[in-house]
Amino acid sequence: MAVVQTRGLTKLFAKGQVGAVVDVDLESREGEFLVLLGPSGSGKTTLLRMIAGLEEPTSGEIWIGGVLVNDLTPRQRRIAMVFQSYALYPHLTVLGNIEFPLKARRMPKEERRRKAQWAADLLGIGRLLGRKPRELSGGERQRVALARAIVREPSLFLLDEPLSNLDAKLRASAREELEQFQKKIGTTTIYVTHDQVEAMAMGDRVVVMNQGAVRQIGTPADVYDEPQDTFVAAFLGSPPMNLLEAAGVIVGFRPEHFHPSAALPADEPVLKLAFRAKHEEYLGAERILYGVLEGGPFDGEKAVARMSSTLAARFAPDVVHDFAVAKKDLKFFDREKETRTEPRALA
């Protein structure tokens, strides 16, 4: 088990900013599941590849388990990585793939067999050992890649979007399995994804990245409920947080906190808003209502409300309705720096 630390880690590319990483300080905790989340090009994969030793940092330090690893090759870092494409060796059987890291470590054949069998059984692919990767389904390939990663009992587990090649249905079950699996083996894991559902569901903590920089680190609840800047606020949640400008600040509230006034308890301090409904999307479990605010501090700005389908109220289009947000659910952001500021009174 090991802890990963980066200090001022930077990677710049000659060809441009896409994928660059700028001055990242990060510290994982023992045995935690740390998710790097960000849009494509935000540098999350580059960061992971630097930790793996596949990319040389422009500057900064990487420590794994208390050892400075900047000048160590990937093989010396004793880590395991699962690639987005799984990168299975096409000419080797499943057994050959799983045994490969052990062979590279010159482990005797019998011990190798035993360990490979253990890893395969752990992932339920014991009966596939004789097959070649091209004869496997997407889910099976992913398991082989995982088995190959855990077989050497690494101190650190790196996963680069390992679920993105699976179809939607399989992805949900694989997500859950992977999470359970990580809890069982307890290895520190760094997981890269652009899918916020994966990040929220699996991560002990989530690192939100954009344009090469870390925007916020925290538990899923932290980053969702208390976004530190407007990027995090807008990136997480679907539909994203309503961000509205008034009196020199940006005010944000989640669509699910934007209710018809009547639905809020009478003693709750609220901000009342007149909301002209435009159209509604019915999504089965919930309804999304799009509209425009009228009067008050946000006159003319668009907003979105999200309600449970079980709510009986109906909202006729092009009619102004009384909506409100509980004051405790309002988040305030500095207009210039776009970072969180103290709540203040709205005119």
């Binding site: 793996a52 596949l54 990937p74 004793r78 494409s85 990168a87 890291p101 590279a104 470590r105 190959r148």
Partner: peptide, 18 residues
């Protein structure tokens, strides 16, 4: 050869010749 594969091998602990 997809770039991933030799990279995976490097992470798996294989040296240049392997």
């Amino acid at each position: 050869i997809p770039k991933d594969i030799p990279e995976a091998a490097a992470v798996d602990g294989a040296g240049f010749f392997r």
